[in-house]
């Protein structure tokens, strides 16, 4: 048993990488691709919200800026996907640092409102700056990315690429959460004054969290521009930011696995409710409020409960046998 347990990680990675080529329904591939792109942002937001305790309702804004920048660079300037991808990542790092610097003193609801305001400003500009962004008609026909002359176009290849980025992000997040930086972030979240007394550089830690989450949102933006090839300002709305926030909070913030549970739950939950038509979002809203009221720590708690249930059952059985 213990021998197999060692290889769980590798088995899961191989399964994930094989997934795009096994599933042959276009619909499911599209759904999983979208989920993967959202998941990268949610994992980044988790660094900010779950580990450092800073709320942002503006991730869709950064996502939008990154997607439009990458799209415009590729379409109008004729720069290749990978170069524009790197430019977008650098831009994302600067945006994150900028937001971090201007909001250093703000916490909780105030921070939430500033990030929301910045995201709404971004959306308004994307909508109104017609000469560059194309306004509400959107930015269309962005060229597809290539790797060594191989054009990534087929849905399964697109999903493969997103999966690779998700796995890389997961390992980066996992390593950071276990490193000195991860511990500093948690210390800042729990009590920033005590953390600064312990010699942790609070400003640096907060800025790192902002930068990291913005870079990951830009990764998604760059991927979105290249792989989907079309974008509209309406898409980068407040609802999308709220969706990312829900993925993190409902999944369980401050845990590596939380955003993944949240992303799976919300993506497949919303699909399952699709039959309700206009009632879909109503049930979704009720679900969000219900989770907030019943499990304020997120769905991770449910997983813990189930594990405890089984553990106590085993213990009980062991006691009966003895």
């Amino acid at each position: 048993m213990s021998n197999i347990k060692k290889y769980y990680g590798i088995i899961i990675i191989i399964a994930l990488l094989a997934m795009p080529f096994v599933i042959n329904s276009y619909y499911w591939i599209r759904l999983l691709t979208t989920m993967g792109i959202y998941l990268i942002i949610a994992m980044g937001l988790n660094m900010l919200l779950g580990y450092t305790g800073l709320v942002s309702i503006g991730q869709a804004g950064i996502f939008g800026i990154a997607a439009y920048t990458a799209g415009l660079l590729m379409k109008n300037a004729g720069i290749s996907f990978w170069v524009s991808f790197i430019i977008v990542l650098i831009l994302g790092a600067f945006i994150g640092m900028f937001i971090g610097i201007i909001t250093l003193k703000l916490k909780q609801a105030y921070l939430a409102i500033v990030t929301l305001g910045l995201a709404l400003m971004t959306q308004t500009i994307l909508l109104n700056w017609r000469e560059v962004t194309g306004g509400f008609e959107g930015l269309l026909r962005v060229p597809k990315p290539t790797i060594f002359g191989f054009v990534i176009k087929a849905p399964s290849h697109v999903l493969f690429m997103v999966t690779v980025f998700c796995i890389i992000t997961f390992f980066i997040i996992q390593n950071i959460s276990k490193s000195k930086w991860g511990r500093s972030m948690r210390a800042v979240r729990d009590d920033d004054i005590a953390a600064s007394m312990m010699g942790i550089n609070v400003v640096k830690t907060k800025l790192l969290a902002f930068t990291l989450s913005a870079v990951l949102a830009s990764v998604s933006g760059g991927l979105y521009a290249g792989l989907y090839g079309a974008m509209f300002p309406d898409y980068f709305s407040m609802d999308l930011s709220v969706l990312f926030l829900c993925m993190v909070v409902l999944g369980g913030m401050g845990t590596v696995i939380g955003p993944i549970i949240g992303a799976l739950l919300i993506t497949f939950g919303l699909e399952a409710l699709r039959g309700l038509g206009e009632g879909q979002m109503l049930v979704y809203g009720i679900f969000i409020v219900a989770v907030c009221v019943l499990k304020p720590g997120g769905f991770v708690e449910v997983v813990g409960d189930i594990r405890n249930l089984f553990a106590s059952k085993k213990r009980r059985e062991a006691e009966e046998n003895a």
Binding site: L245, C246, E278, M281, G285, I288, V289, C292, P296, G297
Partner: peptide
């Protein structure tokens, strides 16, 4: 009134969820 005060982010999400319910209703 059921969400504890110290769960700041969960409370924000709850208000967003209530907004969503009202809108879709």
């Amino acid at each position: 009134c059921y969400i504890p005060q110290h769960r700041g982010t969960t409370r924000i999400i709850a208000t967003l969820g209530v907004g969503m319910i009202l809108r879709n209703m």
